[in-house]
Amino acid sequence: MADTQAGYRRSTGTPRGNARRDELLELVTDDLAANGLADFSLRRAARAAGTTHKVLLYHFDGAEDVLAQAVRQLRQRRIDKAALTAIAERPTLAERVAEIWPILIGAESAVLSQAMGLAMQDPVRYADLGREATGQYIPVLKSLCPTEWSDERKTGVSQMILATMRGFLMHRRVTGDEEGPETGLAALVRAIEREEAAGE
């Protein structure tokens, strides 16, 4: 993966500059979703965005920054899709978690798993790819919890859901076993049902 350092000043945050940056990031994210992290570089990102690496260096801090921003954007797409589906379709947290699973194993799964692997493999450079994932997921999971729960309880249950589903996703990705995670998900849903039945 290229480690090009920024040689140009970044956008100063003007509305026009921000709009252009967002446009470029959307195109790079589309490429990342389609082609994964392998051989990612600033030049590949520039080709995907229909521009030059110099233009990207004006808006971003280099290849690692572009990658991190694109991973974050891809993850947010997944989160938005999952949250909308869960809230719209089901009334309880257990049912909402069950609705989320098919989205989590969807098109973005492979790339986001690669990003987590990169964070574990090279934490000095890419630890934020893992830390930011938790920061993105937990608030959404808390929003799916019963409104009468305390913030502490929402946080604890959300942490449990996130950690458990991450385990299922990793197992599925590494082993190719689809039945095991489905069985585990059913057990997780039952555990959440018991938590909800326990009341405040």
Rank of each mutant, 00 (worst) to 15 (best):
97 V>S: 02
134 T>K: 12
74 L>N: 09
85 T>D: 07
130 G>R: 10
90 R>T: 04
157 V>Y: 01
112 L>Q: 02
100 I>L: 13
136 Q>I: 07
78 R>K: 13
100 I>K: 07
104 L>E: 05
71 V>I: 03
151 D>Y: 09
105 I>L: 00
140 V>I: 09
64 E>T: 14
69 Q>L: 13
128 D>M: 09
77 R>I: 06
63 A>W: 06
124 V>D: 14
65 D>P: 05
150 S>L: 01
96 R>D: 00
124 V>K: 15
96 R>Q: 11
90 R>S: 08
128 D>G: 08
153 R>E: 01
61 D>I: 07
135 G>Y: 12
59 H>T: 08
76 Q>R: 15
156 G>Q: 11
48 A>E: 03
58 Y>H: 15
59 H>N: 12
78 R>P: 02
134 T>F: 15
124 V>A: 15
152 E>W: 06
139 P>Y: 11
72 R>Q: 13
138 I>L: 13
93 L>S: 01
132 E>Y: 12
90 R>I: 00
89 E>G: 06
121 Q>N: 14
159 Q>E: 13
53 H>C: 05
140 V>Q: 10
74 L>V: 04
92 T>S: 13
61 D>W: 14
88 A>D: 09
148 E>Q: 12
95 E>N: 07
150 S>E: 01
128 D>L: 10
68 A>P: 00
141 L>D: 02
102 P>N: 07
129 L>Q: 07
131 R>G: 08
159 Q>H: 13
132 E>D: 11
125 R>I: 11
99 E>M: 04
87 I>R: 15
64 E>P: 01
116 M>F: 10
131 R>L: 14
133 A>I: 00
52 T>P: 00
117 G>K: 08
105 I>K: 09
77 R>C: 08
57 L>S: 09
128 D>N: 09
86 A>C: 03
59 H>W: 11
50 G>R: 09
106 G>Q: 04
96 R>F: 02
59 H>C: 06
159 Q>A: 14
141 L>N: 00
82 A>D: 06
82 A>C: 03
52 T>M: 04
124 V>W: 14
148 E>R: 11
74 L>W: 10
160 M>Q: 03
144 L>K: 02
